[in-house]
């Protein structure tokens, strides 16, 4: 029991945040009114139809983005490698913007066309960054991050181009979506993301041993029996696809994948057998918390959550970059 005490704490904390967060907001809801109220009570409607689905979407998206960040950090052996810094999010954004511009999402509630575009864009971005790091042997951390920055710039310019050519309505939709938001009603959106995040999490759970060995280096991983090239391809494709789906629905919510794995590593250590469940549970709770703050801090105005996570993430990134390197593998 003591061995898994941390897991119980993470689990209770994570579930608690999801259930507690919907009570907070422009109108504070008491637990009694949710439990006792008739179904048509306004407080119950706000809780069940608006705030709880939103908290669930935030949890699933946060868990997925944090797990994706953890996987990229293991593969690139670098704590600064995340879907956001490597340009995967901007690739997904570009794909989704193309989807919106072409009106692909109109028929199926924004799923098929926009989501497929986002997945394609995410894969394109990671292919470019990974290709660049492979092209240059002994590619340094700096070069990899700069490749990510370059991809980010390039895709951002293309997004601007799409916005410029779009009509007023599409421009506004793309812009609001780029800020990363979780505004929606009902359980449709969380249920759409859930299968992808679950599949991604199960896949990552299946390769925890490989993730550990990739963190200590590809040569050592190969010498211990990891089929490195195959595992990396599998991880790149599946993690990028998962990020693509999340981004297509929530927008490019930044820095969750940077902060959560790092904080969890400080708490439970670097072993992915513990780090993966911790990161998933923490990432979910983290984004729910951020979203709750974002929609209450300037009430009645609700900020898109992406603005808030980037507000936290920027300084965190700088701290990671500047802190004295205690170790070489996962510091900077």
């Amino acid at each position: 029991m003591r061995r898994y005490g941390w897991l119980v704490l993470f689990l209770l904390g994570s579930v608690g945040v999801v259930l507690f967060a919907p009570l907070i907001g422009g109108q504070t809801i008491s637990i009694d009114s949710v439990l006792a109220a008739r179904p048509d009570d306004p407080a119950a409607v706000i809780f069940w139809d608006i705030r709880l689905p939103r908290a669930c979407l935030a949890w699933v998206a946060g868990a997925g983005l944090a797990a994706a960040g953890m996987a990229f950090q293991a593969m690139f052996r670098n704590a600064l490698a995340t879907p956001f810094t490597l340009g995967v999010s901007s690739g997904a954004s570009l794909g989704a913007a193309v989807g919106v511009r072409l009106g692909l999402g109109a028929t199926l509630l924004g799923f098929s066309g926009v989501t497929a575009g986002a997945m394609g864009g995410a894969l394109l971005a990671i292919a470019i960054v990974y290709g660049l790091t492979r092209l240059k042997r002994n590619c340094t951390t700096g070069a990899m991050l700069l490749a990510g920055v370059a991809v980010n710039f390039f895709f951002s310019s293309l997004i601007l181009l799409i916005q410029y050519t779009a009509d007023f309505y599409d421009t506004f939709r793309i812009l609001r979506w780029l800020m990363g938001g979780l505004q929606m009603v009902g359980f449709d959106a969380p249920l759409r993301v859930l299968p992808f995040v679950s599949a991604g999490a199960i896949l990552l759970a299946a390769v925890v041993g490989e993730l550990n060995l990739l963190t200590v280096g590809e040569e050592l991983a190969a010498s211990r029996g990891v089929a490195v090239a195959r595992i990396k391809t599998l991880l790149f494709l599946s993690v990028s696809a998962m990020v693509g789906v999340i981004v297509s629905i929530c927008g490019p919510v930044g820095f969750v994948g940077l902060m959560c794995p790092h904080i969890c590593r400080l708490i439970v250590g670097a072993d992915h057998r513990r780090l993966l469940p911790a990161t998933v549970l923490f990432g979910g709770a983290f984004l729910v918390t951020c979203d709750t703050v974002a929609r209450t801090a300037f009430a009645p105005t609700e900020l898109p959550v992406g603005i808030f996570t980037s507000f936290l993430g920027g300084p965190f990134f700088l701290w990671l970059l500047l802190k004295p390197p205690r170790n070489t593998a996962l510091a900077t």
Binding site: G209, L213, G217, G225, V226, G269, A270, N327, T328, L330
Partner: peptide, 17 residues
């Protein structure tokens, strides 16, 4: 580049992959 944030026991265990 051989400094990892793994404990010695965790690292030795990886030999059993």
């Amino acid at each position: 580049d051989q400094s990892f944030p793994y404990t010695v026991r965790e690292f030795v265990r990886m030999g059993r992959y």
